[in-house]
Design a protein around this nucleic acid. Structure first.
Lengths: 241, 241
DNA sequence: CAGTGGTCTAGACCACTAG
DNA sequence: TAGTGGTCTAGACCACTGA
């Protein structure tokens, strides 16, 4: 198979699992048995088991042994970005309004605000090729002496610098649902009032600081968005050891 | 921090990355430097680096060094199953029709069928609490002398046994979009013809055998489905070594 | 060429599990 | 008590990189 010992062992064990000779819940042979079976040192066996574990095939219980996982077949992954993930390219942003408001209870709960802290509410239209294709309402905590936020909000993906800076600790969640456009939306986005639109609620948090950065409501016609998701592949070739 | 050496080193390096003292693209100190820096053996350092690599913080280039990743902030993960992932519970299935047909070009391409092979087209209604809430059209390759497929299709999640058997090699993809119901659907599902519905196209393949098992069109009202997705957490506590 | 990461071994001690 | 996996060390050889 492979000229790398631990990969050959991985392939061999994986085959046993896939072919069903090892079933979910079954215990693998002990590491010392496997050492003899494959005529290798312990660390080589452990490297193989480690790879299988990372790929979701097995898990280990200290003092007992290594076991085949009960597989999960309903996990999907997809890549999505409001600003460059649509079927068309955003080339202009119209900033409709920027207001400082007292947050509603819902916003307050989501953003986990301080007492009496206000929010900035920004409403924007995203355009592609001079057509208005999406609308979003953004809420972010208002901090006094903030840098000129309005200039910032004129950029479609104004969070990009922050995202790059905080990338390793960013927690994002999105809720995707469907509604009918309000009158304003249907006029703005030039769609029929009985054509459905996606409603995507996105929250962005700094997971390390447990601090909410933003929540937004994003509306776009299904014309411009399809969610394509797939079961994740084995995390290939990750460095172990 | 931690009484386990490699975890303490992971935490230390992770902090440097999060705090920005190590930026994307930067090279980490070499393994031998890190050995001296933390006063541990090489394998301990490598175990730490391995964990960081698995969690997407770093990658390594043989002959050069270990580098901080350019982070990916737009990957989302969610769990979804047509049959137990809705806002309500499916408790009955009405099998409307099962036909053997010559596949359309689209189906033929998706299922990658043999010449002249036919498909089974099954149409089903999924009910919850005696309301008809979802409709699906399933296509699967027709093989002669097949076991009584109609009995099977009366079970909502009739693929479950196959999924469990093939779990480790199953590739699923779903496309989520939105349309308006056809006349039949709106009558069947008792929804207004100008209420939108989710259209979910799912393909299921055996990734090991490169064999397509099924493709289906699934229709459900947004009332019963919201997609909730989030950025994946660090793959916690995976066994390495 | 020296330095880097990749693979692999042999051996050690520990905490945990089960009979 | 014997066996299991978890952690850690010291040392070896390799292929690859860049000066």
């Amino acid at each position: 198979m492979s000229d790398v010992l631990y990969l050959a062992i991985v392939a061999s064990l994986k085959e046993k699992i896939i072919k069903g000779r090892l079933k979910p819940g079954d215990m693998l042979n002990s590491e010392s048995s496997l050492m003899k079976e494959y005529s290798v040192g312990r660390m080589t066996i452990r490297k193989s088991l480690s790879l299988l574990s990372n790929e979701g095939y097995i898990y280990s219980v200290p003092g007992k042994g290594n076991f085949v996982c009960k597989p999960e077949v309903d996990i999907f992954q997809f890549k999505f970005n409001k600003y460059d993930g649509l079927n068309t390219h955003i080339d202009r942003v119209k900033l409709l309004s920027v207001k400082v408001k007292i947050p509603t209870k819902q916003i307050d709960r989501i953003l986990n605000m301080d007492e009496n802290q206000k929010v900035v509410e920004a409403t924007r239209i995203l355009c592609s090729d001079d057509k208005e294709i999406a609308m979003e309402v953004i809420y972010l905590p208002y901090v006094q002496n903030q840098p000129v936020i309005e200039d910032m909000l004129k950029f479609a993906n104004y969070l990009k610098p922050i995202e790059e800076k905080l990338a390793f600790v960013l927690d994002k969640t999105i809720n995707i649902s469907v509604t009918m456009p309000t009158k304003e939306m249907s006029e703005r986005l030039n769609i029929n009032q009985n054509e459905p639109i996606f409603e995507i609620i996105e929250t962005i948090k700094n997971g390390a600081a447990h601090e909410s950065l933003q929540v937004s409501w994003f509306y776009v016609s299904p014309k411009y968005l399809t969610i394509k998701a797939a079961t994740p592949k084995d995390s290939v070739d990750k460095r172990i050891f």
